[in-house]
């Protein structure tokens, strides 16, 4: 186990002006277990508490309550040991705008104990891996958002740590670079590195991680592999747009092949194990009741449906 957290909590006391403070319960009791060598994702909407959780695990902030061991060391009592074993790429990136990326890579290597020669070799390696060699000597403020993001990830990998935290690593990347980064993260796993990443994107968690937790309002609402989570909800979703949603829901709930029905503002979602075969039946029943459809679609269930099931909200709306 590379990460083991029990009952992590963080309450902030945010200033609200005129001396008043407001209590913000950012994380309200999170348990996490990440195995060595796996890619683990924390999926959740804005403000769910992902960054706060990662910051506690990376020793940037101390938990209000609970304990966590990272790479075998306690995050509070043995923070220095934890720091020797992790790479941390914050959501903000942490690239110094005024200096060239190469200088920052070299400094990061040297403060971790590398010699000048080793630091230079490691920097060259990372620059090549992230196609940054050409722009390594430009002040970082002249780089594009995506280039900066790649530098920030390279900075987190300088020490070749056994565990890397990536807080929203693909935000702001174009599809090409996003795919490249996914490959890079998978390559990390192939080399035995464990990765904890956070994301808002369902497809990212789905495509990339071995296991994930879904976080909402500071707690874990679901945990498992992407496929086991999706199995919780039926395999296919039929989304219907029509008038008389409530009546249609009632009718469909009575059908044996429909596992579950959810409605929201003129939309109806019916969960079916076998969409291709269930759909014709479903259409016939609606027609018998004279319920006319405006539109219909059949999709595979996604992690969004898992989120919806656990929170009653869609992840797309939750933010």
């Amino acid at each position: 186990m590379i990460i083991e957290a029990h009952g992590l909590r963080k309450t902030f006391h945010a200033k609200r002006g005129r001396g008043k403070t407001e209590e913000v319960e950012a994380v309200r009791g999170i348990d996490l277990e990440v195995q060595k060598g796996e890619i683990f994702a924390a999926l959740g909407p804005n403000g769910a508490g992902k960054t706060t959780t990662v910051r506690m695990l990376a020793t940037f902030i101390a938990p209000t309550a609970g304990t966590a061991r990272v790479a075998g060391f306690d995050v509070v009592k043995e923070a220095a040991k934890v720091r020797e074993n992790i790479g941390y790429v914050s959501q903000a990136g942490g690239v110094d705008e005024n200096n060239p990326g190469i200088d920052q890579l070299l400094l990061a290597g040297r403060i971790a104990g590398l010699s000048k020669k080793q630091a230079l070799a490691r920097a060259d390696e990372l620059l090549a891996a992230f196609s940054l060699t050409e722009i390594a000597r430009r002040p970082a403020r002249t780089l594009s958002g995506g280039q900066k993001r790649r530098f920030s990830i390279a900075l987190g990998l300088v020490t070749a740590p056994p565990l890397v935290f990536l807080d929203e690593p693909t935000t702001g990347l174009d599809p090409q670079n996003r795919a490249n980064l996914w490959d890079e993260v998978r390559a990390l796993r192939d080399r035995g590195t464990s990765v904890l990443l956070t994301t808002h994107y369902l497809d990212e968690a789905d495509a990339l991680c071995d296991r994930l937790v879904i976080i909402d309002h500071g707690t874990v609402v679901a945990e498992g592999t992407p496929s086991s989570l999706k199995k919780e909800v039926a395999g296919d979703v039929v989304t219907l747009k029509l008038k008389g949603v409530d009546e249609a829901a009632e009718v469909l709930r009575a059908q044996s092949y429909v596992k579950e029905v959810r409605t929201e503002e003129g939309l109806l979602r019916a969960y079916l194990d076998d969409g291709e075969h269930g759909l014709p039946h479903l259409l016939r029943v609606l027609e018998e009741r004279d319920l006319t459809l405006e539109s219909i679609s059949l999709d595979r269930a996604t992690l969004d449906d898992v989120f919806l099931r656990h929170t009653g909200r869609s992840l797309r709306d939750a933010a």
Binding site: Y88, A92, G93, G94
Partner: peptide, 20 residues
């Protein structure tokens, strides 16, 4: 003055959890 920005852009955050 220059350090104020670094409290937000993650530079100090990165250094704070580095082995420095």
């Amino acid at each position: 003055f220059g350090m104020i920005n670094e409290t937000r852009n993650g530079v100090l955050e990165r250094l704070a959890v580095s082995p420095a």
